[in-house]
Design a protein around this nucleic acid. Sequence first.
DNA 1: GATATGACGCAAA
DNA 2: GTTTGCGCCATAT
Length: 124
Amino acid sequence: MGYFEDIRAVVRGLPPGKVATYGEVARAAGYPGSGRQVAWALRHASARGIPWQRIVGAGGTTRLPGESGMEQRLLLEMEGVKFAGGRIRMKQFEYRFPKTRAKGGRRAPGRPGSAHTVTGRLRS
DNA sequence: GATATGACGCAAA
DNA sequence: GTTTGCGCCATAT
């Protein structure tokens, strides 16, 4: 199964009325850090039963240019997703992928790499 | 094999 | 609040 298939499977798993970010989809598909490829895959998907409209940028921003963006917003609003100031209320509509089941509701408390001092990469 | 591309993400300015 | 810069990584050419 190729990248495309993985992405497709994950996106198809999104329930109506919920959205996910490219990054989250990529992570759920097993390709963390390749949010761009999610976009690429969706562009090629163009439908095929894939709810592409449920994929939005980080923070709930729509990333589709032109009329496709309006179509996406329309479709999402039909599903019950509400927009606020051009953005989706992610707090309410972001879908959580069933990755690991933490009983406390918190996921992976204290996982490594979440240091507050390091930004993740060296800058300058 | 190397270079270009993109519906991204995130931190710094 | 907006703009800039850079990393990221699978396809395309």
